[in-house]
Nucleic acid binder design. Structure first.
Length: 896
DNA sequence: ACCGCCGGGTGCC
DNA sequence: ACCGCCGGGTGCC
């Protein structure tokens, strides 16, 4: 199931939200006030009756420091707020006590002044201050007018119609949570219907036959790019264009985005579809003119149309320029350069692309997270027909070209969000921003959901009419997330946050009638989304082979059980003490340590070395010792596989730091807490003193394994789990010698221990873990995916290795050696082989030690799954709820 | 007339 | 602005 969590805050004004940032979601309507706009004749901006206007402070106005400008939806100034009123508004606006929004109810054609109906929105606690401030200037708010869409702009009851309509206080009728849930479910439903079911064949240069749903996506994308439709919510009226949300009108036809959001579930082939689009729709629906090599075949491999095949391996025909040095690190050494030379020497070229700049833009820019950059390169390699030649430039690395004309000559330029943001930050020196692109594709587009992030701003400022967002999770936490995407698509008038907020976001969050409907029709007009269970012509989009998860219980040996029990009793005693002392959270890292050791003991006694942790009492120690202890604790937290979240942002840790009270947060998050609560900041988790200079950063180097090092000096012994695994592997080999399997663990040391018996029993195996260099990874993957005789049948895989794109479809069996805290991490791992291209039924075996922490983890996993399934309309948990959940989990895990 | 009244000039902030 | 406001011109009926 796609992760579309919709927080309660999407629908209800939720009070407490940690304060620091202006959160417009908890705003209530204080009331309304009629004022006047003056000075109309000095400005060009015009409005219609009932049109929304923006009020903007102008503190540097030489005549009045209180000045408030009035702009129309287009951003053109209409006039000023009359000075007496402006004097009252200035303080309110400057101190962000309220959001003041205006609508011109009538008199839009007046020559000198016109009325403006203002609504004041803000947090409950600021209401008094606002009313007071207005009162001091002799103004008084009227209660909110009641109308079907009061405060949301559309239909104002004009003054003349008489105020007999206006009375009740509540602006909008709120739907029940259930209603909202079902409403929102519909948001992405049926997007495939009507015009989105046409299919289109890809251009010849696409060497892979598209699946039906991919042909549909291609047809839809091509039609979007070539469409002449008006953007959503615009109508043509006699000789002007009219926006039905804001009532703004203009002569000039508003541009629709020649793109949209491809929001297919992971695994449906968004990348391939985008590649097909690039090659199929250049101009006027004609394919991209690329070199076609018509003479003899150049390569040994002969790739024909293969249905989304894996294992086409190296047969490729794209030329990837390597002056970045990055591509060569990603790709097997021989892949590109040799071919490029070969082709240059012998190929006869039928049609050479024109390089004249007067042809208009040619290049497509693709921006993606670094983790999927190599996947894009692979996919281009796989899917471009070998007789065609496509120029791809990987804009990455310190020697990336600063010359925009190099970029604009390409067919495709690939880069990452970080590079995009870095270049953009170095002002005036971003070649990416100097090129007018034919097309811009943002992959994993949800990474730009934070509108304040540099990468978002950098993406918004790219030039190019065809703009696409690829994402499997268009809405991650709330409707808010959509704004950056919509803004990137340059959909008028939503590029300005005020109009988005007033016309879509607030109506939806406040449950205004029609709010969801608007959002839905907006989404429908620019989004294509299919899930794994969607159907095309009555058949599932993807017919994946079956997937079975078996749990195989393992009984520890006598010796293992003895060690386990003694560590457990010791840990349980310590944790009980923490509970009785009320210091559970202060010892959180220690508790994780106990649990980690128990989990390791379930796998193999050697995983767990320093059983006697000295860190239980940390009284009189030097700063250096303290620092070291903290670093150790942080590493423990990070390596415990518990997928710790930052209690401030509630997301996974970025740039983790540990506090003196041993709690781990994102550095930016905790720094902000310290800054905003100074001088007496307290730890959000335990309320201990918090100081910026006490924060300890994690010494770099990705994968931290707490049990690293000491493996060679210990004699190898087996364990109950290893025995169970080997038994299963040998049985599997006997029944099906060519079957491939993944052996997955969170503990890379455990994987190393497993290498021993694999060798002894004559298995050919390979390995993939987070510590391996990019090049080694690619080798390991290609080696494993190969179907050649003698290729590895086992891959030792660390649970979190590899990005989303990791494709291990050669495997049809998975042995999960130890359960993960987060069931989603397990699922993601299983999806690496249970995905497009898998030909066999997939059987997953989870080894679980009977009567152990592992069994308890299964129970917690079950709960989490249930929670995730029902999470749709549930509120995002607060920090204290997260805390309580954790405490409960700890109790359950250690049988307290 | 230290007023009223008239009518022209004028006009955002 | 077909207003308000300003300030100069003017002054019984």
């Amino acid at each position: 199931m796609p992760i579309i969590r919709l927080g309660l805050e999407d629908f209800l004004p939720v009070g407490d939200t940690s304060g620091t940032e202006e959160d417009t979601d908890s705003a209530i309507l204080y009331g309304t006030l009629r004022g006047s706009v003056v000075g109309l004749r000095y400005y060009t901006g015009i409005v219609n009756n009932n049109e929304m206007v923006a009020l903007q402070r102008e503190p540097n106005n030489p005549y009045d420091k209180n000045a408030v400008k009035v702009n129309n939806v287009n951003g053109d100034q209409v006039g000023h707020i009359k000075k007496e009123l402006a004097a009252a508004l200035a303080g309110i606006m400057d101190n962000k006590l309220a959001l003041v929004e205006g609508v011109v109810p009538y008199g839009a054609k007046n020559a000198f002044t016109m009325p403006v109906q203002m609504s004041f929105w803000g947090r409950e606690e600021n209401k008094e201050a606002v009313l007071d401030q207005l009162k001091r200037h002799g103004f008084k708010l009227a209660p909110p007018l009641k109308g079907p869409e009061c405060g949301f702009g559309s239909k104002w009851i004009s003054g003349r119609a008489g105020p007999s309509y206006s009375a009740p206080v509540h602006a909008a009728v709120q739907l029940t949570t259930e209603q909202l849930k079902s409403e929102f479910d519909k948001l992405f439903e049926d997007l495939k219907e009507d015009d989105k079911t046409c299919e289109m064949e890809a251009a010849e240069a696409v060497g892979t036959l598209l699946l039906p749903h991919q042909k549909q996506a291609l047809a839809w994308m091509v039609s979007r790019e070539n469409s002449n439709d008006l953007p959503p919510f615009w109508e043509e009226r006699s000789d002007f264009y009219y926006n039905i949300l804001t009532n703004f009108a203009e002569k000039q036809r508003p541009k629709n985005v020649l793109g949209g959001i491809l929001a297919d579930d992971m695994g449906l082939g968004k990348t391939l579809t985008a590649i097909a689009l690039i090659l199929t729709n250049y101009q006027d629906g004609k394919p991209l003119p690329v070199e076609k090599i018509t003479s003899e075949k150049f390569y040994e491999e002969s790739g024909t149309n293969s249905m989304n095949s894996v294992g086409r391996g190296l047969s490729t025909s794209c030329v990837i320029q390597e002056d970045t040095g990055f591509a060569s690190a990603l790709l097997p050494s021989s892949t590109c350069l040799k071919r490029q030379k070969k082709r240059k020497g012998t190929a006869s070229v039928q049609s050479v692309k024109k390089k004249h700049s007067d042809d208009g833009p040619r290049a497509t820019l693709i921006v993606c997270p670094l983790s999927v950059l190599s996947n894009w390169i692979d996919q281009f390699e796989q899917h471009i027909h070998q007789d065609f030649h496509v120029n791809i430039y990987v804009y990455y690395g310190s020697d990336r070209s600063k010359d925009p004309s190099i970029l604009s000559e390409q067919d495709v330029v690939l880069t990452t969000y970080n590079i995009l943001a870095t270049d953009y930050g170095a002002r005036g020196d971003s070649p990416l921003h100097k090129v007018t692109w034919l097309r811009i594709v943002l992959d994993e587009g949800h990474t730009i959901r934070n509108p304040n992030a540099q990468q978002t701003k950098a993406a918004l400022n790219l030039e190019g009419d065809r703009r696409w967002v690829l994402t499997g999770t268009p809405i991650q936490n709330s409707v808010k997330d959509l704004w950056s995407l919509i803004s990137f698509l340059k959909l008028k008038p939503f590029t300005d946050r005020e109009w988005w907020h007033r016309t879509i976001q607030r109506p939806v969050t406040m449950g205004a009638p029609g709010g969801l409907g608007r959002l839905q029709s907006l989404i429908r007009s620019i989004t294509l989304r299919r899930t794994k269970t969607s159907k095309v012509k009555g058949k599932p989009v993807l017919e994946l082979p079956e997937r079975k998860v078996l749990i195989q219980y393992v009984t520890l040996t006598e010796e293992e059980r003895q060690i386990y029990q003694s560590v457990k009793e010791e840990g349980k005693a310590a944790i009980s003490r923490f509970f009785s002392e009320g210091t559970v959270l202060a010892h959180y890292a220690d508790i994780l340590g106990v649990l980690l050791r128990l989990r390791q003991l379930c796998c193999h006694p050697h995983l767990c070395i320093n059983t006697s942790s000295s860190s239980f009492s940390a009284d009189n120690i030097t700063p250096e010792e303290l620092r070291e202890t903290l670093v150790t604790k942080m590493k423990l937290v990070l390596s415990s596989g518990s997928d710790e979240e930052c209690a401030v942002c509630l997301e996974s840790l970025t740039f983790p730091v540990i506090t003196r009270c041993a709690h781990v947060f994102c550095k930016p998050c905790i720094s902000e807490v310290i800054r905003s609560e100074q001088p007496n900041a307290k730890c959000p988790l335990c309320r201990n003193e918090l100081r910026a200079e006490h924060l300890v950063e994690c010494p770099l180097e990705g994968e931290v394994d707490s049990s690293n090092g000491k493996k060679s000096d210990q004699e190898w012994i087996s364990s109950a789990k290893i025995n169970a695994l080997m038994h299963a592997l040998i049985e599997l080999r006997r029944d099906n010698p060519t079957a491939k399997c993944l052996v997955v663990s969170q503990f890379t040391t455990f994987l190393s221990l497993i290498e021993n018996p694999l060798k002894e029993s004559g298995f050919v195996f390979t390995r993939l873990d987070g510590s391996m260099a990019q090049k080694k990874r690619v080798e390991a993957i290609q080696c494993f995916q190969s179907s050649q005789a003698g290729s590895p049948t086992v891959m030792l895989l660390s649970l979190k290795a590899g990005g989303v794109g990791l494709n291990l479809t050669a495997a049809s069996r998975v042995f999960l050696m130890d359960p993960a805290w987060n069931p989603a991490a397990e699922d993601q791992c299983f999806d690496r082989c249970h995905r497009l291209g898998q030909k066999h039924n997939v059987v997953i075996t989870k080894f679980i030690v009977k009567d152990s922490v592992e069994e308890n983890m299964l129970k917690i996993q079950k709960k989490k799954r249930e929670l995730a399934a029902g999470a749709f309309a549930t509120k995002k948990p607060s920090a204290s709820e997260v805390k309580q959940t954790k405490i409960n989990e700890i109790k359950a895990l250690i049988d307290l």
